[in-house]
Write a protein that binds this DNA or RNA. Structure first.
Length: 275
DNA sequence: GTTGTCATAATGGTTACATCA
DNA sequence: CATGATGTAACCATTATGACA
């Protein structure tokens, strides 16, 4: 069974339903037109969020045998997103009490399984609570699924359509789920990397602060030296050949004759590098 | 049983790119 | 060829859910 929803223009919905098998069906988003299918056909995978349907490999094999049921919603009918989320956690027939906790659309089920269970469902659009609201259903991937995705992610952190399809088949998930998983996984990687970078920069900052203090101190000493003895000060400066920094620690204590002061550059090519 | 926190699945919006008229 | 419309996929920020302490 397929259920077509039309917002605003019923005639458009009819045409949509006829084209329901088109992989581009969801693209008809202009205006108030809104179409969805659910329940008993192989495109059980609902998705009120129309554009998701494109990601679903199974969406294109919707059965053509069923006569679509078309609803024309009244102005106060739920918004598409609400409908969408309702579908996500629609009653799968496993519970009679109607509590939202007991309900839920098992997104891990195969299309066949979903079809079988939804065959008992007559309440796909019933409100889950008094307000007519419903929460989206969040699945937890099994350990095996997660591990497999993780392995796949190690090999390539982005998916091409072929790889995606392979994972979809292997893990029995929807394409959108695989896609979202990779998306979120990339986000986690990026976040982790950002944290590492942040830590590294923090360390750099600390090092530079210490370095800066040292240099400030050196500068202070040099200035003090210069004011106390301007002639000697010039001759006591030494330059580290590696970092090209002026050392002034003992400069104030004794005067080093100019020729003995370290040259800025070693004049001979074979001269060992400064340690 | 309730509450707070955390990990993460899912959503909606935006953008870039390809294709077509 | 240039251009606008449209479709598609990827990314991002954010939300919401489920598990657990």
């Amino acid at each position: 069974m397929e259920l077509g929803l039309s917002l605003g223009d019923a005639s458009k919905s009819s045409s949509l339903l006829k084209e329901n098998n088109s992989p581009n069906e969801h693209q008809n988003q202009t205006g108030l037109d809104f179409c969805m299918s659910l329940g008993l056909t192989s495109n059980y995978q609902e998705r009120g969020k129309a554009h998701d349907q494109n990601d679903d490999a199974s969406a294109s094999d919707a059965s053509q045998d069923e006569t679509p049921l078309q609803l024309n919603l009244l102005p106060l009918a739920p918004l598409p997103r609400q409908i969408s989320s309702r579908l996500w956690s629609s009653d799968n027939g496993s519970s009679e009490n109607g509590s939202s906790a007991a309900k839920g659309f098992d997104v891990n089920r195969t299309p066949a399984a979903a079809e079988a269970s939804s065959a008992n469902s007559k309440r796909e659009f019933e409100a889950d609570d008094d307000n007519g609201h419903n929460a989206r259903k969040k699945l937890r991937l099994s350990k095996e699924q997660s591990a497999f995705l993780e392995e796949s992610f190690k090999e390539h952190n982005t998916l091409n359509p072929k790889q995606k399809l392979a994972l979809v088949k292997q893990l029995n998930l929807r394409a959108r789920q695989v896609e979202v998983w990779f998306q979120n996984r990339r986000a986690r990687t990026k976040l982790k990397q950002t944290e590492v970078d942040c830590e590294y920069l923090k360390k750099c900052c600390e090092t530079l602060t210490v370095e800066n203090r040292k240099l400030q101190k050196e500068l202070q000493d040099l200035r003090a030296l210069k004011t106390s003895n301007p002639f000697q000060a010039a001759t006591t400066l030494t330059m580290c050949p590696s970092c090209e920094r002026v050392a002034s620690t003992s400069a104030a204590a004794k005067v080093i004759p100019f020729p003995l002061a370290r040259p800025r550059f070693y004049p001979f090519p074979n001269q060992p590098a400064a340690s």
